[in-house]
Structures are given as C-alpha cells and as structure tokens.
C-alpha cells in the first residue's frame, strides 16, 4: 500500500497488466514516445517496446477499429482516445461494432477492449477539451462505462476492465489526475465493474455522484453537517453502466431523500435514469422530491473564466441544494 495520485494509480494498473500478460497492449495518439498528453503512459514504451505501446496515426476510428480487430484475434488492447471530446469519429466503431459484436454474432465473438479517455472540465480546456458526454455511451446496450475518481478504484477497475470480455469505456477525470491522492494496493487489486462505493456514510439524505463532482459533494456534505448537524450519505457510483441500482435504492430507502449530482449536462443524463429507478422502486420511501444538480444544457464548457464559472457546479451550489432538500 502506498499513497498515489490518480494518474499514478492508472499507470500502475497498466504496467502491472502488461507485466503479467503479454496480450495486453496499448494503442493511441502520442501514447508511446511522449507517454500520452497527460503522461498516463509515460515510460511504458521504454519498458514494453513500441510493438506493445503503439503510437498510432491521428485517427480515432482507426484506434478503436484496430483494437477491435486485435481483440478478436487474441489481444487485450487498451486504446487511448486523447480527450473524450475527440471520440465522435470512432462512434461507428464503438456503437455499431464493439457494442454489437457479441449480440449480432450470437455470442461467437468477445470484444475485450478498453477505451481509456480523459474527460471533464477544470483545466480551462473550453469547448473541445472539457466535455462529459458519458450518457451518450451509457445509452448504448453492449458498452460498459466506468468513471472512477478514487486512485485505488481506478487501478482496480482498470484491471477488471482489461480482463472483462466486453468493451469498457474507462473515463479518467483529467482534473483529478494530479489533484486526487489515495492509498493504492500493490498487486492483484481488482474492483468489480457495476458496484458503487459508499464514500461517506449517513442517514438523513443521500447524494449520488461520481467523478470530480463527487469530491465537491463530499466537501459540501462536510460543510453542511458542520453548520447544521445531521448526517449525509454520499455514494460514488464508480460504474455508470452497469449501474448499481441496489446500492442506490438501499441508501435512499434508508434516508428518504436523494440528490443526484453530475458534471454532465442535465437533459438525458445519468441523473434522469437514477431518478426514474428511485421513483419506480423507492417511491413509498421518499420524504422529498428526487433532485438533480447538473451542468446547464449548453453545447460545451465555455472558455472565458466568468463563463466557465457559470457552467460549473461547485460545493456551494451543492450545499445550497442539500439545504433545500433537507428542509423539504
């Protein structure tokens, strides 16, 4: 056990898998010599060679298509899309191919690929380097989507994703890379895909979140409890698809109040799905309206600092939402 940054935990997970299994390979833009634009894959080409850490041409559909073909023929590819914002050219490969291979081949084909990609705001990346479009992928049957923020979770989920026989979109919050630190087990650590984590225990109100907004939610819960007392539970979803409905329902049945917080925009987001699950299965337990706090429905995060601030939901916004819901 050692304390590591989120980015170090992910790099460790990759190196450990490559050490243990020759089938694991990496492909993406700048992942080799440069070690990735955020340097997640730094040093891996030196250790494992340019055959297993492939600097690909600048073509996202190529990266995913090659990963699918390699996966169908014995490899366990980990593809990197440099920013989640750059993934649309690969959508055909992800949506029409990776997500459907098993189904349309009646189970003849596995598609054990991982698509690692940094997402989210917080580094002033503006429109094309800040998006949280995870709901696009959770809508597609056949894809798994995870978004760990705790370093140990990131390493454990990455290991699970690499060995998962189905395609996994592995979302890495770019602001979290060097700002989130935690204890990370050394070897053989896995976290099951599809299981949430109770990040903070409580009994009066449940916050359901993931990614950097989980950090803001924890800070908001601390601030609220310090001032008003009471007890707030915070769930870190970690996996967005499959979604851990049991953990969500168990918590909401206990607290009677649910606040869903995410960085992605509101309409058609994960929050709507969670709200529907709660409404369908825990209606009689509710003491207040299921509440969502999410980014505004504008095309992308704007650049100028005041505009960016208008887009972002921080711990003060979350705290205000807690106060309103707690008082209901």
């Amino acid at each position: 056990m050692a304390t590591k940054l989120l980015i170090e935990a992910i790099r460790d997970g990759l190196a450990e898998a490559m050490d243990q299994d020759e089938r694991v390979m990496i492909i993406g833009e700048d992942v080799g010599r440069r070690g990735g634009v955020f340097r997640v894959t730094e040093g891996l080409m030196d250790t494992y060679g340019e055959m297993r850490v492939v600097d690909s041409p600048l073509a996202e559909s190529l990266i995913v298509g090659v990963a699918i073909g390699a996966a169908a023929n014995g490899m366990l590819p980990v593809a990197e899309i440099q920013f989640l914002d750059f993934i649309p050219p690969a959508m055909d490969q992800l949506m029409s191919e990776a997500a459907k291979l098993r189904y349309r081949s009646n189970g003849d084909w596995d598609c054990p690929i991982v698509i690692r990609t940094p997402y989210g705001g917080g580094i002033h990346g503006a429109l094309y380097h800040s998006q949280s479009i995870e709901a696009v992928f959770t809508h597609i049957p056949g894809l798994k989507v995870v978004a760990p923020i705790d370093p140990a979770d990131a390493k454990g989920l990455l290991t699970s994703a690499i060995y998962d026989p189905d395609p996994v979109i592995f979302l890495e919050h770019k602001k979290g890379y060097r700002s989130i630190r935690g204890e990370v087990p050394d070897n053989g650590h896995t976290v099951p895909i599809g299981k949430a984590r109770i990040a903070r225990e409580g009994s009066d109100l449940t916050i359901i979140s993931y990614g950097m907004y989980l950090q803001e939610s924890l800070a908001a819960a601390d601030a609220y409890v310090e001032e008003h007392g009471g007890s707030i539970e915070v769930i870190d979803l970690r996996s967005l698809k499959p979604l851990d409905s049991d953990a969500i329902l168990e918590s909401v049945m206990k607290t009677g109040k649910a606040l869903i917080v995410h960085e992605a925009n509101m309409f058609g987001g994960i929050g709507g799905e969670i709200a529907a699950i709660i409404a369908e299965h825990a209606f009689a337990y509710l003491d207040g309206p299921v509440t969502r706090l999410a980014s505004p429905d504008v095309p992308a995060m704007p650049f100028s600092p005041p505009l960016e601030q208008a887009f972002v939901r921080d711990k003060n916004d979350i705290r205000a939402a807690i106060e309103k819901l707690a008082a209901f």
């Binding site: 559909s61 298509g65 073909g69 169908a72």
Partner: peptide, 25 residues
C-alpha cells in the same frame, strides 16, 4: 470468417487490427 457487415468501412480497420495481433503474437 470474422463477419460480414452492414456498414461500409469498419472492416478495413478491424482487419488491420487482426494483422497487428498476428504480428504481436
């Protein structure tokens, strides 16, 4: 037979991926 496909293009990329795996293995 790694599949016939209803969308034109993706098979070119996947066949290249299969070739990459043969080279690596």
């Amino acid at each position: 037979l790694m599949g016939t496909t209803g969308i034109v293009g993706p098979n070119l990329l996947q066949s290249t991926g299969a070739a990459l795996s043969f080279q690596l293995l």
